[in-house]
Design a protein around this nucleic acid. Structure first.
Length: 428
DNA sequence: TCTGGGGTCCTAGGACCC
DNA sequence: TCTGGGGTCCTAGGACCC
């Protein structure tokens, strides 16, 4: 098998640069929701030694000193550019698995074009057509392709091949070189091995990807479970993690956000819960599913010592599996009222949809009272939102002046998804 | 002042069934 | 004295990913 992993470099930061050529060589960082942590960086920012995940307030001085461009998360922009990249890949490669917002695995066997020239062309077309830089790793398995892509990041050509499939190709490597690359790769650089497992591995004398590859199967199975064993096999070049171009429907859908400020009022929490339920329900409908349960959690700020702390959650079950927003919102609000306690300043509310099942093949209750008009209404509402924007129609009114939303003080325009935010060009 | 928001898979153990 | 065996389903918890 020949697998490629296409990875967009510093994706969020790169998206911010697409419509800002003036930022070409400047360090750029992108913040998490609520402008809390640094979650993505351009290469220039990484070279300054900024750690990923650091809270913004701890990095402030460094960012100012180095003239770093700082952006709030502009998820509408990233999601749209991601879709363009994935559409391009899927239009060229019959079997492509979109693994995350910025990565896709491609199955490169039995294609008319050889893997490396094909990947080189994909890179340049994504760069020219969409404006995003990528790295591509090519290898016989997904785990090896991840390692190869990591290497590719450091090469000017952005392309690196590991193992058999590349043999004969100009930048390919032989078997011995695979071992050399694995020996240089720390075990935490292997997809699926993080610091938690690395400790256990260290005790066994396993520190590199090569040592993990050559570990004893029975020991691996016992200590790292079947998941770990599959990783080891993949390191040996034996495909053990399938490429899946139609990922299964989600089994749970979560919508949760920290507030921009502490929120104590039930009324404001009810607004937020309505808003999050609408987001989750949109995802539910998009994958053609219904849900049976809604979980609500709310919590105070765990980083504020001295303040009274409380967190609570509850599950609300629906009579019939549903995707009908007004019913879901009513149930979610019921759940919130039952866990809400007066006298706390809340930091976060979460809505989690579970008991998910496909809309087709739906199980109805004994006294099924589902109303066909609900489905028709939902379809109309969805098409109106698609045409006029997500705020065009909802069943969750916001009181004027409500301001519990997350902070996004450095938000860039939604260049590609909002008519009012289109980039303008000056000629001459 | 200030610390993200989603998801996945696997295993063990208990309840329950015949 | 002696107390089956095999299966499913669910949940909690632990690990990981971007």
């Amino acid at each position: 098998m020949t697998v490629a992993l296409v990875d967009c470099n510093g994706f969020y930061a790169a998206c911010e640069k697409v419509f800002r050529p003036d930022l070409e060589h400047r360090p750029v960082v992108v913040l998490s929701n609520n402008d809390g942590c640094i979650v993505a960086m351009s290469r220039e920012a990484r070279n300054l030694g900024i750690p990923r995940g650091i809270p913004l307030f701890k990095a402030r001085n460094l960012l100012d000193r180095e003239n770093v461009a700082v952006f709030s998360s502009n998820y509408a922009l990233y999601a749209d550019l991601s879709r363009r990249v994935m559409d391009l890949l899927r239009s060229r490669i019959p079997l492509a698995e979109v693994y995350s917002i910025d990565e896709a695995f491609l199955q490169l066997d039995h294609l008319p074009e050889a893997p490396l020239p094909l990947c080189r062309r994909l890179r340049s077309d994504i760069r020219r057509g969409i404006g995003l830089p990528t790295s591509i790793g090519v290898a016989p398995t997904k785990v090896l392709a991840k390692i190869a892509a990591g290497r590719a990041k450091r090469l000017p050509g952005g392309l690196f091949a590991l193992g058999e499939p590349a043999a004969g190709a100009e930048s390919g490597l032989g078997e011995a070189d695979v071992a050399a690359v694995l020996a240089e790769t720390p075990v935490t650089g292997v997809w699926g091995i993080a610091s938690g497992l690395a400790g256990r591995l260290k005790e066994k004398g396993i520190g590199s990807a090569l040592e993990l590859r050559d570990a004893d199967d029975a020991w691996v199975k016992r200590h790292l479970t079947l998941t770990g064993l599959r990783i080891v096999w993949e390191l040996r070049g034996i495909p053990s993690i399938a490429l899946d171009d139609a990922p299964p429907a989600k089994k749970g859908i979560m919508s949760s956000r920290s507030f921009g400020r502490p929120v104590a009022e039930l009324n404001e929490l009810l607004e937020a819960v309505g808003d999050y339920t609408a987001r989750a329900a949109a995802k539910l409908r998009a994958q053609g599913s219904l849900c049976r349960h809604i979980d609500i959690w709310l919590t105070t700020d765990r980083f504020r010592p001295g303040e009274p702390r409380y967190s609570g959650g509850t599950a609300v079950s629906l009579d019939d599996a549903s995707d009908y927003l007004p019913d879901l919102v009513a149930a979610a609000r019921r759940g919130l009222r039952s866990v809400f306690r007066e006298g706390y300043r809340y930091k976060k509310v979460a809505v989690f949809l579970s008991g998910i099942e496909p809309r087709s093949g739906r199980q109805t209750g004994l006294f099924d009272d589902s109303d066909p008009r609900k489905d028709a209404l939902s379809r109309v509402a969805a098409s109106l939102r698609e045409r006029f924007g997500p705020e065009a129609l909802g069943c969750v009114p916001r009181r004027p002046g409500s301001d519990w939303d997350m902070r996004r003080e450095c938000l860039s325009p939604r260049y590609t998804t909002s008519w009012t935010d289109l980039a303008t060009a000056r000629i001459g």
